[in-house]
Design a protein around this nucleic acid. Structure first.
Length: 268
DNA sequence: GAATGTTTACAGCGGG
DNA sequence: CCCGCTGTAAACATTC
């Protein structure tokens, strides 16, 4: 029986791990994307315990950001100077916590190395098409050099959170034009004819995911913190962007707004 | 120099 | 007892 959580902790240490605290901060930011300093600030504002001994716990927190695959470093826009990167949550990291509780993770979230590489490359490439094409070339060369190294690492289609097609994407090692498909997320529904043909619930059918100016507001911050609830919302805010590469559909672990559209690149 | 990020090491704890 | 998760410390590199 889990210990009931209080709504405030005063100067007492809250029962959340650094991973949980960081996840809270990120999810409660309007863009689900925060620089390190803002993560610190959120934690200090919400939990007075962390207003002291800042050197110690901030070192631990940085260690967690680097060490855990569930956090993704997003490079700053190259045209926007500033120190440090932005951090976000890996979209597939949401089932880490038991019953939505942030007290202790069920299982550490890990990403296979090559998948991590692809993800990081895409993020690193987000700011310039030129870099993006360069990295595609690198992947192509890698695949030609040693296809077996790629094959076992291609994410299955269930990484596409909004797509109902089931066929896993098989890498073909054939150069194809690079395009990006943005798929709006449709909420899961019962597998019945009536349910499947019914229109999306009001407010979801016409949701615009793509406009930078319409960054969705974060949900209000309340304790105890229900991770599952917010995770569900997170996927509404961040539909999966499938990157149609020569290896099949690779998810782009990117935040809204979509970074590979034709308009001006967003400035973080 | 300070902030940020990476890595290694180790200890405590709980579960299997 | 082993293993995995977490917290802590520390060294070091990078960037502004």
């Amino acid at each position: 029986m889990p210990r009931p959580l209080k709504m405030t902790y005063g100067d007492q240490k809250p029962p959340y791990s650094y991973i949980s605290l960081t996840a809270m901060a990120i999810i409660h930011s309007p863009q689900r994307l925060l620089p390190l300093s803002e993560i610190y600030r959120f934690i200090m504002e919400q939990f007075p315990y962390y207003r002291k001994n800042t050197q110690k716990w901030q070192n631990s927190l940085r260690h967690n950001l680097s060490f855990n695959d569930c956090f993704i470093k997003v490079p700053r826009n190259v045209t926007k100077a500033g120190k440090g990167s932005y951090w976000t949550l890996h979209p597939m990291a949401f089932d880490m916590f038991e019953n939505g509780s942030l007290l202790r993770r069920r299982k550490r979230f890990r990403v296979k190395q090559l998948e991590k590489d692809i993800s990081n490359w895409k993020l690193a490439a987000a700011n310039t098409e030129m870099v993006n094409h360069y990295l595609d070339d690198q992947l192509t060369q890698m695949a030609f050099a040693d296809p077996s190294r790629i094959a076992g690492h291609i994410p299955p289609s269930n990484y596409d959170l909004g797509n109902t097609s089931s066929a896993a994407q098989i890498p073909t090692y054939k150069a194809v034009p690079t395009t990006v498909t943005q798929l709006p997320v449709r909420p899961k529904r019962a597998f019945t004819i009536e349910s499947l043909i019914a229109p999306d619930p009001e407010g979801l059918a016409h949701m615009d995911y793509g406009s930078p100016s319409e960054a969705k507001k974060p949900p209000p911050f309340n304790l105890p913190f229900n991770f599952n609830e917010l995770a569900a919302q997170y996927h509404l805010y961040f539909p999966s962007f499938l990157y149609n590469s020569q290896y099949g559909n690779i998810p782009c672990y990117q935040k809204t707004p979509p970074l590979f559209h034709n308009g001006p690149l967003p400035v973080f």
